[in-house]
Design a protein around this nucleic acid. Structure first.
Lengths: 226, 226
DNA sequence: TTAATGTAAACTGTTAACATTTCAGAATAT
DNA sequence: ATATTCTGAAATGTTAACAGTTTACATTAA
């Protein structure tokens, strides 16, 4: 990996997150700060910070003796992630006040327009997609709910990033689904919006699993030796 | 605060978490690594780590310039926390297989017995209480759901710890509610279990809000000056 | 007076070194 | 042979110093 001088911690984090998801670090493998620091030509500080974040993302586990072991990542984990995201976002839909919706409707449609724009250029704009879904949660005004959603955000960003070659094709349908969700919400049809959102995310999950399978390195359980 | 030689990072974290919740650091106030390090007689490393965790707990916010500002904590935040916990745990109840339940029923009742034991000694065992609720979530086998719940755990531990003088009185009722929840689950009455769990946590929330109000320092909005 | 510019202090990001704990294997005793 | 104790290596926890950026404020120009 090429590490530039600034924001070292973030670069290390993104590198490790991607490698674990892709299976280049295997379940049971130890992450040793000194070794990683040497490999990546950085000091232990940023590596330590990155590992702490990976722990919060459930990709590694810190033992009581301080050592860090990779938890691995497979299709089941993707499904768990999407299941939980469906739970959070569908709950969010029930908690949005009509005032709050009115205030943010324009922004929701702006995001939709920006996705259309990107799609016309043959691109997929992950950030805007996540901003759209994030706004649905933010509109609840529930700080904890928002925080929980945000704690999954980077993981989804990486997942979508890795699998974008699979998902870029059905961008048009994704955008249409976003429109339908907002329309249902505006009409006060919360149940309908929930149904649409669930289907939307389940489809995304399906494509994501496919995309990961394609890119993932072959599984092989490693018994924990450094 | 007295800082002992080992596990400095954790001590700093718990100190800061408690202080922010109690309102001894106010909304808008800056957390400066160098100052905190001097105040607590430790180096910046552990302080940095602690601040990163506080950020994940939504108690502070890191600006793009790197500076850390306290987000504050009030009754609304407690309600958000409990609302989200109800969401996670009630969803968990729907996802527990009967096999999984059979396997863990004994452990659930063990926790209940341990709470009874503590109660007979006039104590309240926070850890066991949290272990009980945590097991409900773990039984879903959904890694993400479990992780989300765990990310709230320390915050709840601190909250319950601060407010334990209020909640220790109704320990007996809390234990009885735990029993009823497990019984409903065992009978396959998931809806009933959800209803009981929701009421259980809403009551806990109420007592927690009371307890915090008693212990909290008077609010005063500080405009962000170091 | 207001805006622009320069500068020292304050603060974070990063690195490197020191301290302590944990681990693995050799040496010893039973 | 098996168990136990010792010892050095390896890894984490912590500290301290360095580098770069941002902030705050004084100075200058319009």
């Amino acid at each position: 990996m090429r590490i530039t001088k600034k924001n070292i911690f973030n670069q290390v984090l993104e590198y490790l997150r991607k490698e674990i998801i892709l299976g280049n670090y295997l379940k049971g493998e130890y992450l040793v700060e000194v070794n990683l620091a040497k490999e990546l030509n950085v000091s232990r500080g940023p590596v330590r910070e990155a590992i702490a974040k990976l722990e919060a993302e459930n990709l590694v586990e810190k033992h009581s003796n301080g050592r860090t072991v990779v938890k691995g990542f497979d299709v089941k984990d993707i499904q768990d992630l999407y299941d939980s995201r469906i739970l959070l976002e569908n709950h969010a839909l029930t908690q949005i006040s009509s005032d709050e919706l009115k205030e943010n409707e324009n922004l929701l449609f702006l995001y939709i327009d920006q996705m259309k724009e990107a799609h016309e250029k043959g691109k997929r704009d992950i950030e805007i997609d996540l901003a759209f879904h994030g706004l649905l949660v933010k509109m609840t005004k529930n700080n904890t709910l928002t925080q929980l959603w945000l704690s999954l955000r980077e993981l989804f960003r990486t997942l979508i990033d890795i699998t974008s070659e699979v998902t870029v094709s059905n961008q048009k349908e994704i955008i249409a689904q976003h429109v339908r969700i907002v329309d249902s919400l505006s009409d006060g049809e919360v149940k309908e919006a929930q149904h649409l959102l669930k289907a939307h995310l389940e489809e995304a999950c399906k494509y994501c699993c496919e995309g990961i399978m394609i890119n993932k390195r072959g599984e092989k359980h490693v018994t924990g030796k450094n």
